[in-house]
């Protein structure tokens, strides 16, 4: 029996001498291992984080003259145990490294079992953005667009108030007619005479569709074949001290066409 144990022990020691020595590192302290790879470039798995039992970094890559690469790997274990570094490595094209020879490492802990320790000393954030930052931006953008869209839509859908109807001012004809009638019955007051004279000017300007300014139109109307005679006669009555005051019949006769005029009726 003791012979069998001896033979096994020697065999094991010989086997151990031929195999790759297992790298060892203390939990939380970086360990190093160098491997030779001919199949291509390696990189660490991109999905590892602080919760992964093993983190890895490719510290250096050396190209060999006879082909292949020497990778200087730096690993850090967060949990004690034996691991294979192939599990945390991939080829640069994302392919699995299962075809490589095993790269065993051991992570040991010098702390007592069940002793509490936080390797990364990370504190959970007081609040987190559920759904992430991009989602938050999208939500803000949607609200940003929705608010004016809702406001505009509500305004468009709101029943329009009835248009404010401003009372129509009296037309020139409506202003002129009572003055003409009054002039036939009685002596007009000074303001009435002034308004009658100017209304006759404005009436003729509208009737003849003279687009120029009031002063230019008045100067033109005084020289007009049809309007001029009437306007100059009224002007003479009202302003020329040498002209005899007109009789009621004169006024009636002169203003007769204007008693029932409508704007534009006179051509």
């Amino acid at each position: 029996m003791s012979l069998v144990v001896y033979i096994l022990t020697v065999f094991t020691m010989l086997g151990a001498t031929d195999a790759q020595p297992m790298a060892e590192a203390t939990r939380g302290i970086a360990g190093h291992v160098t491997i030779e790879v001919e199949q291509g470039m390696l990189r660490g798995r991109p999905d590892l984080d602080l919760d992964s039992p093993l983190l890895i970094r490719i510290a250096a890559v050396h190209s060999r003259p006879e082909g292949g690469f020497l990778f200087d790997l730096e690993f850090l274990g967060t949990q004690p145990g034996v691991f294979d570094l192939r599990e945390v490595l991939v080829f640069s094209n994302g392919a699995s490294t299962a075809q490589l020879d095993p790269i065993p490492i051991r992570i040991v802990s010098h702390l007592a079992d069940h002793s509490a320790s936080d390797l990364a000393m990370t504190m959970p954030p007081e609040s987190t953005l559920r759904g992430g930052y991009v989602t938050l931006l999208i939500v803000i953008g949607v609200v940003w667009i929705l608010v004016p869209a809702i406001v505009i839509t509500r305004r468009l859908l709101r029943p329009r108030p009835d248009p404010i109807v401003t009372p129509r001012g009296p037309t020139l004809a409506e202003q002129l007619a009572p003055l003409v009638e009054a002039a036939a019955d009685r002596q007009l007051t000074i303001p009435e005479q002034a308004r009658l004279e100017l209304l006759l000017y404005w009436h003729w300007q509208a009737a003849l569709q003279l687009d120029e300014s009031r002063p230019e139109a008045v100067a033109r109307l005084r020289r007009h074949d049809d309007a001029g005679q009437l306007l100059r006669t009224v002007e003479s009555w009202l302003h020329d001290p040498t002209t005899a005051a007109p009789t009621r019949d004169d006024i009636k006769k002169l203003l007769l066409p204007y008693g029932h005029v409508s704007t534009g009726a006179v051509s």
Binding site: R214, P215, A219, R222, D240
Partner: peptide, 14 residues
């Protein structure tokens, strides 16, 4: 003219 008429003040108003 020896009397003023509306054309006078209208022309000069501006």
């Amino acid at each position: 003219r020896n009397y003023a008429i509306p054309e006078d003040f209208l022309a000069l108003a501006e």
